[in-house]
Design a protein around this nucleic acid. Structure first.
Length: 418
RNA sequence: GUGAUUGUAGCUUAGUCGGUUAAAGCGCCAGGUUGUGGCCCUGGAGACCGUGGGUUCGAGUCCCAUCUUUCACCCCA
């Protein structure tokens, strides 16, 4: 019973719907290409240590959501719970930091695994499109990354997705801010939820992200990260906002978005929609200037984002956007008699060689059944050949759209269906 | 991990206070004479009623457990 059931939180993408994926993948590739990002493909699993160090020990992802196991060589292995760490590892391992900077890379359809309770827009395995830009500390790099996401969403015709922007500072100013925040919260600590009490010590910034009503009201008037940035972070943020405004791009400053991964510094952003249920974050990203150093490299700035492809598809569907259907079948060969089959096989191969989509009966069906089948699979033409046609060297070509049919020399078939 | 929700043919569902061979529509397959689709008509295949226990003379119908579905919390894409 269980062997005919996909594991919880996973899903099959069936032949009749895969064209939707191809559609968004193509737009993703085209968009990345215009921005001169090159594709990188990295493993589906990595050493667990990479995520402990990269994503951060205090995060929920690392604490309770990773698919971690020991392989037969006693290595601790983890199915990747996000895309950035693996790409950063590959970047370092292959010495891409020794070449010309910046290095701009993207990935599509990259599987991501997290042990979660599935719900709308949330799965245990989902797929991400993402980009990573290594080596540039300028706010124009942030702008480029954000603009790529914006362009992509525009290409997909999505208007319901809005950009939320924030800056959470850097190792220089974050500690100061944490103190300011803790001072503010200290009086109300008793009224906050259990996890927030813990966060107060481990990662006070995450309290801003708490969804518990009580905590939300306490946090509402809390000091904001953007008001306590050091000069460098502040300048960076101002420049970014300036560029986006100059470009005429809309965004909201949301002081409460802080992101759930520890590697973020300075800029953080999310693209959010309210059209696909409770899980509305379609794209999330930001700057991670410390990650490369954290996993053993030199100090090197970087920015990027991850975009959930399932959520993107849900958003497209919710918007009522019609994704172009795949191409129709050009010709279906129907055999009126079995002795025509060899000739049909030859003509079939010829048409396919010319790039046409062609089929013949391989089920041994009657002519009538072949016609019905051809109708069902949506063909432009049916080419009928039986003993008579075989002798005359002809074929009957029937249009399945209007029912017109005529007999022609078999050599004329290719021209007629092109 | 928490709360709620679902589970009958491939799909969508019906199944009366527990009572004999579990229905229907769609889909699938085959026919409706002489080599041809879409409509219509006829027939056929197809269900261990999620699974395991229990109550009962008897359970798809009641009870328990478990798995599964879906939605929300949490978290995130």
């Amino acid at each position: 019973m269980l062997i005919t059931k996909a594991p919880k939180g996973t899903q099959d993408i069936l032949p009749q719907e895969v064209y939707k994926w191809h559609y968004i993948e193509n737009i993703m590739r085209d968009t990345a290409k215009k921005f001169n990002f090159k594709e990188i493909r990295v493993p589906t699993f990595e050493h667990t240590e990479l995520f402990l160090r990269g994503v951060g020990q205090t995060t929920d992802i690392v604490n309770k959501e990773m698919y971690t196991f020991e392989d037969k060589g006693n290595r601790s292995i983890t199915l990747k719970p996000e895309g950035t760490a693996g790409v950063a590892r590959a970047f370092l391992e292959n010495n891409l930091n020794q070449g010309a900077l910046p290095v701009k890379m993207y990935y599509v359809n990259s599987p991501v695994f997290r042990y979660e309770r599935p719900q709308k827009g949330r799965f245990r395995e989902h797929h991400q499109f993402g980009i990573e830009l290594f080596g540039a500390q300028s706010a124009y790099a942030d702008a480029e990354v954000i603009m790529l996401a914006k362009t992509l969403l525009k290409e997909l015709g999505l208007k319901s997705v809005s950009l939320k922007l924030n800056s959470i500072g850097c190792p220089k100013c974050r500690p100061n801010y944490n103190e300011v925040l803790k001072d503010y919260l200290r009086d109300n600590i008793d009224q906050m939820c259990g996890t927030c009490k813990e966060r107060f010590e481990t990662n006070p910034l995450r309290i801003l992200d708490c969804k518990v009503e009580g905590c939300k009201t306490i946090v509402k008037d809390a000091p904001k990260t953007v008001e306590h940035l050091c000069e460098e972070c502040s300048d960076h943020f101002e420049t970014l906002k300036g560029v986006l405004s100059e470009l005429g791009e809309e965004f909201d400053i949301d002081p409460l978005i802080v992101r759930g991964l520890d590697y973020y510094t300075k800029t953080v952003f999310e693209f959010i929609t309210d059209t696909i249920g409770a899980q509305g974050t379609v794209c999330g990203g930001g700057r991670y200037d410390n990650l490369i150093e954290e996993i053993g490299g030199n100090s090197l700035p970087a920015v990027g984002f991850g975009m959930g492809m399932e959520r993107l598809l849900l958003t497209i569907e919710a918007a009522g956007t019609v994704i172009p259907q795949p191409q129709k079948i050009d010709v279906y060969f129907a055999a009126a008699d079995d002795d025509a089959k060899d000739m049909i096989a030859i003509k079939l191969a010829e048409l396919r060689k010319e790039g046409l989509i062609a089929e013949m009966d391989i089920m041994g069906r009657s002519l009538k059944a072949q016609m019905k089948y051809a109708n069902k699979i949506d063909c432009r033409f049916v080419a009928i050949i039986g003993s008579d046609e075989l002798q005359k060297g002809t074929v009957i070509l029937r249009s399945m759209e209007n029912g017109d049919q005529k007999e022609m020399k078999i050599e004329e078939l290719l021209e007629a269906v092109k």
